[in-house]
Design a protein around this nucleic acid. Sequence first.
DNA 1: TGAAATGTTGGGGCG
DNA 2: ACGCCCCAACATTTC
Length: 474
Amino acid sequence: MSAAIVWFRRDLRLADNPALDAAIASGKKLLLVYIHAPTEHAPWAPGAAQMSWLHHSLERLHQSLQSRGQRLCFFNGASAETLKRLISEAGAQAIFWNRCYEPALVQRDQALKTELKALGVEVNSFNGALLHEPWEIKTGSGTPYRVFSPYWRKCRERLVLKTSPPLPQMLPPAPEVSGAVALEELHLKPALNWDRGFYSANRQPGEAGASAALVRFIDLGLASYKEGRDRPGLKSTSMLSSALHFGEISVQALAQRLFDYAHEHAVPGLLTQVEHLVRELGWRDFSYHLLYHYPHTPSANLNAQFDAFPWAWGPPDVLERWQRGQTGIPIVDAGMRELWQTGFMHNRVRMIVASFLTKNLNIHWQAGARWFWDTLTDADLANNTQGWQWAAGSGADAQPYFRIFNPVSQGERFDPEGHYVRRFVPELDALPNKTLHSPWIAPRASRTQYPEPLVDLKESRAQALSRYAELRGR
DNA sequence: TGAAATGTTGGGGCG
DNA sequence: ACGCCCCAACATTTC
């Protein structure tokens, strides 16, 4: 019986996994591998928070493979060397993987593909992560899109969702190889349990956890998604970002399932809600589109005009107060503390803290991007880069720089009952809603445990606008 | 997927 | 009855 390798990377699932399905269909013995090679992602080696999630996700995938007569084999070390050795040991004629799109991984995978083909190995790669491949969507003149709306119009009209293939039951046997290590030997899990707040009933790594989160979202959040998605105090978002990052759920299967649900349940307006969520998945695709076509953007402004912008990198204590949630601005601190404690932050609050860092504090968006990279379990190079450049105003389809969020009015508008702020900034619990988002106007005795604002909002806004005016005047 | 300043309108109080 | 002022509510412009 001939053999093949399935190289798992960011597709940690069995359902709707094109590489795995094709490998099973090939009728070969299958060696299922995961290789931990963080330096190959340089300069964006996976951050500590996402490695915690990854550990649990790999554990779950290994378990569900074991219940199907297979296993996931773990390796440390260089991917190309490891795979060439395994191909030789297993006598494999073919390898299957789902594509990655980060610049360093695209380079690595292309070089490997060339090398393996020269050795006579059949290389099969698939789209297992996106609604559309980044190169499939082009403007009329054949260039990449740089603006979301026309990009999405094009994607939406050509979006074709297929019914997912059935979940593989028993898998073919594995060939014997040497050098596999236990999952623990990948050292993904933190030595100290600082990640204990990351996991809860509705945030569980792995395919089953993603599935449970989706069921819960469809039951509780979908019907009011359009209105509720901006309210961090509610539970109206899917909470699927980490699962999408690691491929614990297929984005195509997700969209398919939501449309199916809307068509089966003739509730007025439900299809509109689904369209809004799928549009957010479109933003995710758009981020990958931009990263693929503009691979320098994780470390450089997409709009080169901003190269002359006088962003500072410090002073260090200011950045640190932002990181620790001690800025004295309640909605900002709530967000930064949510991030630190749970490895997640609500999207609306991500925009608020990013605006505050890049505009009111005048700190470079890359300092924020780095912090998110290390602390988010869903840290994703495409989304993170695009999100920060969007917020900073330096991106292709960014918000104009002069759109500066007022964190007080944002707090009053999107957390009117203060549930979110009170949850993460408990020292403000006793303040009435009227002053919760601007505690500095409340009597001093009622807020002795909470810092004074790091900056004056009105003044720092004016300074940001004048820096911007200067940039435009050049 | 803003905020703040500025402009416009129209109702009501009041001399 | 009429004009004037105030100001809230909304619209537009500007950053």
